[in-house]
Deep mutational scan, measured.
Amino acid sequence: MALNTPQITPTKKITVRAIGEELPRGDYQRCPQCDMLFSLPEINSHQSAYCPRCQAKIRDGRDWSLTRLAAMAFTMLLLMPFAWGEPLLHIWLLGIRIDANVMQGIWQMTKQGDAITGSMVFFCVIGAPLILVTSIAYLWFGNRLGMNLRPVLLMLERLKEWVMLDIYLVGIGVASIKVQDYAHIQAGVGLFSFVALVILTTVTLSHLNVEELWERFYPQRPATRRDEKLRVCLGCHFTGYPDQRGRCPRCHIPLRLRRRHSLQKCWAALLASIVLLLPANLLPISIIYLNGGRQEDTILSGIMSLASSNIAVAGIVFIASILVPFTKVIVMFTLLLSIHFKCQQGLRTRILLLRMVTWIGRWSMLDLFVISLTMSLINRDQILAFTMGPAAFYFGAAVILTILAVEWLDSRLLWDAHESGNARFDD
């Protein structure tokens, strides 16, 4: 018995066209964080690309023209004298008006014999932002004059995390709450300039795509075929072959399989920071003279006294001054041990922890910024005066060393310790 099946006739004509040209192939790229070699397709503007294995951002879609970056830099340069030299806060102490600005706080630190601690604050609040705007201006002028731009481009990517104007702005709020127990506070004209400078700096850093600047100024022929001998440069993120001198053909720094002496430098910085954190938390970090009496505060006791007036601000200072430094030390110690013992479990967790400490590390400088600003506000000789204690130097040095330890660690070593050939990683 035959089955009668109805015929289905399409209502619209289906047209099949042959592909007349070869589909576009992607360029081969190595991930600078996990060293995976993959094919990167062509990316349009405002599109980002991520590593298929570790999800690290390979290409950032946010990109401004150099002219727009230069305009932002010149605007920031105009704001800087007002943000640093004009009063941020006014207080009335014992019937006398006192003005506080950024430069005055750094000068008070240096004047009291601790120039190293003052230079830490100076670099993060004044030096690094000033280098940022002058570097962008150098790129703008240098591109037109045919100057060598490689050193500036190499420095810009590392400079971003040292620009800490946003953290200093939080420190202004913390210092205001600490001082309000002794005097009446009012915002100064410099505060508005400083807030504007923070906003412009944040926007500029978020749109400063150094890798795209490398592509514009020093374009290189990408690798179009897969080759395990391809290496990625950690300076400019170019994937290719080393030249005859073993250097990256684009930025001219040595092109090595792994960062040289990464573990040794990381261990040295980490152990030194552990040693410095002990006096930083045991010795007094601030000293207040009130009517001839002397009151010393460690980091913890200062947080407890701050909690009596504002528990939320005390929580912020606790996280930045105690929780973050010790968390960074514990995480980095764990990561280094996992590399030495070739741990194969929990790779995803370790990668996330490394990215976390990379982002939060700079916030530990908050305590030094609060001390710097408070020193310029309260300084009335023996009637009422505020000065920093010996722990300030140890704390600042420990924070900087932990930042350097994270920067010096080559994250690809975590993958080397893991089993080879993993296309995915999980716990």
Rank of each mutant, 00 (worst) to 15 (best):
A2N: 06
N4Y: 07
N4K: 10
P6H: 07
P6M: 04
T15R: 09
V16P: 05
V16W: 07
R17F: 05
A18P: 08
R25S: 10
Q29F: 06
D35P: 03
M36N: 07
M36R: 01
F38Y: 13
S39L: 11
S39F: 11
E42P: 05
H46M: 08
S48H: 13
A49S: 06
C51G: 09
C51F: 07
A56N: 07
K57M: 10
D63T: 15
W64K: 03
T67Q: 04
R68W: 05
A73L: 11
L79S: 03
L79R: 00
M80L: 04
P81K: 12
F82Y: 09
A83T: 03
A83K: 02
P87G: 03
L88H: 03
H90F: 11
L93P: 01
I96C: 05
R97L: 02
A100H: 01
N101I: 01
N101Y: 02
Q104M: 09
M109E: 10
T110R: 14
A115P: 12
G118A: 14
S119Q: 02
M120W: 03
F123T: 02
F123I: 02
F123Q: 01
C124S: 07
V125G: 08
I126V: 14
L130M: 13
I131E: 01
T134F: 14
G142A: 14
N143R: 15
N143L: 15
L145T: 10
G146N: 05
M147R: 05
N148Y: 03
V152M: 01
M155E: 08
R158I: 13
M164V: 02
M164D: 10
I167M: 03
A187Y: 12
S193R: 02
L197C: 03
T201F: 12
T201G: 07
L205G: 13
E215R: 15
R216I: 10
Y218N: 08
Y218S: 12
Q220S: 13
R225K: 13
E228M: 14
R231V: 14
V232Y: 14
C233N: 00
G235H: 07
C236A: 00
G240R: 11
C248N: 00
C248P: 00
I253T: 08
L257Q: 07
L257E: 12
R260N: 10
H261K: 05
C266R: 01
W267F: 12
A269H: 03
L270G: 13
L271M: 12
S273H: 04
L276C: 12
L276Y: 06
N281G: 05
N281T: 11
L283F: 06
I285E: 00
I288V: 11
Y289S: 02
Y289F: 11
R294C: 04
E296G: 11
D297G: 06
D297Y: 02
I299W: 14
M304Y: 14
A314D: 00
I316D: 01
V317C: 01
S321N: 01
P325H: 06
T327R: 00
I330Q: 09
V331S: 14
L336I: 11
S338F: 14
S338R: 11
I339R: 11
C343S: 13
T349P: 14
L352A: 11
L353W: 14
M356T: 12
R362D: 01
W363C: 03
I371H: 00
I371W: 01
T374P: 01
I378M: 03
N379K: 10
R380W: 03
L384Q: 00
F386K: 00
T387H: 06
A391I: 01
A392T: 04
A398W: 09
T402R: 00
T402K: 07
W408S: 05
R412Y: 00
R412P: 01
L414H: 08
H418E: 14
H418F: 12
E419P: 08
N422G: 12
N422A: 15
R424S: 12
F425V: 13
D427W: 09
